[in-house]
């Protein structure tokens, strides 16, 4: 990081001298009212509580101007069903769970079944940030991966690099004009959490299956969840170090 920063500064200085513009000024935190060095966020999904109502998916789409078509999701809910006599689970996510989940198998035929909410894992080692050719996606100091919709060129390398399918290309008929043709993804509602609010999906969840917290705040209830439960992350073998922690999922969930 330091070497890259140095390189950048050298480049910047070079171009600055070439054009005679003054060197860039640097500030400690993005705004006066929020110091991002004092926060480090984390997300816990308690799969044992999720009822698959899809209110989170809806809240997310309304909060973040996500197109309503069933191909674009910042968060979605998957249903896992192990049928009796079958080893591999049946998985589905009709419209991302936006309209809930119709019953498709009789209870008697089912060995085990539950819902798994999915969202961006805000990886500590995000492959999407690594592959962005222009620096349009980045990890903030408080641990959230964001996309710069005014800088993204829409090459979609990040979409390919994400092992979790958390990114999509904002369509050209999407409601937010300035975001069209750029990569979009869950930001843990960065515009909310930096104001002290919870992400919209957490707000909307009626059963507390989604918990959001600040690891740098010792009184946050997230510590209790992380300490008292056996937790796992999705696709740990990818080496991405996800920051969304799951309670009560099998290894078949990926």
């Amino acid at each position: 990081m330091i070497t890259r920063r140095k390189f950048l500064k050298a480049l910047g200085l070079l171009s600055a001298t070439a054009a005679g513009v003054s060197a860039k000024t640097s500030r400690a935190e993005p705004t006066e009212y929020y110091d991002w060095s004092k926060h480090y966020y984390s997300f816990v999904v308690d799969s044992t509580k999720c009822i698959g109502c899809g209110r989170c998916v809806r809240a997310c789409k309304l909060e973040n101007e996500v197109p309503l078509e069933p191909f674009f999701f910042r968060t979605w809910v998957e249903r896992y069903i192990w049928l009796k006599g079958e080893e591999e689970p049946y998985v589905d996510s009709p419209n991302g769970g936006f309209e809930g989940f119709p019953v498709i198998y009789d209870e008697k035929a089912i060995r085990k079944s539950y819902f798994v909410p999915k969202l961006c894992n805000q990886c500590d080692r995000p492959p999407c940030v690594q592959v962005c050719p222009v620096g349009a996606t980045y990890k903030t100091e408080d641990g959230v991966v964001l996309v710069d919709e005014k800088y993204c060129i829409g090459c979609r390398y990040c979409i390919q690099a994400c092992p979790y399918g958390a990114r999509y290309l904002y369509p050209f008929n999407g409601p937010r004009k300035s975001r069209r043709g750029t990569a979009d993804k869950c930001t843990w509602c960065y515009h909310r959490i930096t104001k002290g609010l919870k992400p919209a999906c957490v707000e909307a969840c009626p059963v507390g299956a989604r918990k959001f917290g600040d690891l740098k705040d010792p009184n946050d209830e997230i510590h209790k969840l992380l300490d008292e439960n056996r937790i796992s992350v999705l696709k740990p073998e990818q080496g991405t170090k996800p920051k969304v922690f799951y309670i009560g999922i099998d290894t078949e969930v990926r």
Binding site: F7, C132, V134, G135, I153, Y157, L169, T182
Partner: peptide, 27 residues
């Protein structure tokens, strides 16, 4: 490549601010 970009008008960013960890930035 340029025709497929979501924002072809921003294509030169890849030369102005190449992100060195990206394989594509070298293009």
């Amino acid at each position: 490549l340029v025709a497929h970009l979501g924002h072809p008008e921003r294509a030169l960013e890849i030369m102005f601010t190449p992100h060195l960890t990206s394989a594509m930035a070298g293009f």
